[in-house]
Amino acid sequence: MFENTAHLFIELEQVCLQIAGEISQKDKSEKAIPIKVEKINDYEFNFRVGGDVLIFILQSNIVKLSDDTYLAKSKYLKSDDNLKYFGQILIYNFLSDTLTFGRLDDLGYLLGRVLLNMENKFFLEGDRKVVFNFPELKENPVTPEKMRALVEQLILSALDNDLLAPAFQDIMVINYHQKLEHTSSMGNPKKIGFDFFAKNRE
């Protein structure tokens, strides 16, 4: 099962590289959108698009759904206990400046968690706008078209989420250590927030 998840992880990286190439080909202006895929290691890569970065993380462990989750109670998973075991791929959204300036206190959002079972079918949790474009687990085998759609929708979700300025009171008083250590992050914005889905869609 891990092999299937690792293969899917590589496929997602290839999709990101393809999209990056297509955007670069179409946008050759002086003010072209910064776009780049960076492989960190076999378990992580980053996809920077404009002011956002999607961080894809392959989990090395196989997990089992708890029996009290709604998905575990479905007829599909009850038919074979082995179907309750999943490989995981996590996709976080950070601001590009967070990585560029090493702002350790900046928050990231889990835009998507892909759970892949032994039949190469996947279940998606995360931003509701993305999740609702994919069927339930038993009707959702991995296909190149779905992986392309997933990456495209994750990009749109990240780019469409506005930045919120911190409250004036939160940055009104700082000590000198904060100034020395966090100059690049003073007053940095945060995402307004996403409408996350991790519950029953029915």
Results as ranks from 00 to 15, higher is better:
46 N>D: 11
161 N>I: 00
100 T>W: 10
87 G>A: 04
145 E>N: 12
71 L>H: 03
7 H>S: 15
150 L>G: 08
74 S>Q: 11
196 F>I: 11
161 N>Y: 00
165 A>S: 15
153 Q>A: 10
86 F>A: 04
187 G>A: 14
57 I>G: 00
114 V>K: 01
197 F>L: 14
14 Q>F: 08
31 K>Q: 05
16 C>Q: 02
68 D>C: 07
63 V>D: 00
33 I>H: 09
189 P>F: 10
128 R>N: 13
186 M>L: 15
150 L>S: 03
67 D>G: 06
169 Q>Y: 13
75 K>I: 04
79 S>K: 13
111 L>H: 11
192 I>K: 13
115 L>H: 04
26 K>P: 00
50 G>V: 01
136 E>V: 12
102 G>F: 09
4 N>A: 14
126 G>V: 07
171 I>A: 11
69 T>M: 04
82 N>S: 13
73 K>P: 01
125 E>L: 12
147 M>G: 00
70 Y>F: 12
131 V>G: 05
35 I>A: 00
187 G>F: 15
84 K>M: 12
181 E>W: 12
25 Q>H: 07
150 L>T: 02
125 E>M: 13
143 T>L: 12
25 Q>R: 13
62 I>T: 06
91 I>A: 03
66 S>H: 12
189 P>D: 15
55 I>K: 09
17 L>V: 09
74 S>P: 09
1 M>G: 05
25 Q>I: 06
118 M>L: 15
61 N>H: 06
134 F>G: 01
56 F>L: 00
11 E>M: 10
72 A>P: 03
110 L>G: 05
157 S>G: 05
83 L>V: 04
149 A>C: 11
105 D>V: 14
42 D>C: 02
185 S>L: 07
16 C>F: 00
142 V>L: 03
177 H>P: 08
145 E>G: 12
97 D>Q: 11
7 H>E: 15
84 K>D: 03
27 D>W: 02
96 S>Q: 13
8 L>P: 05
119 E>C: 02
190 K>V: 13
46 N>A: 05
183 T>A: 15
109 Y>F: 14
165 A>W: 10
99 L>I: 09
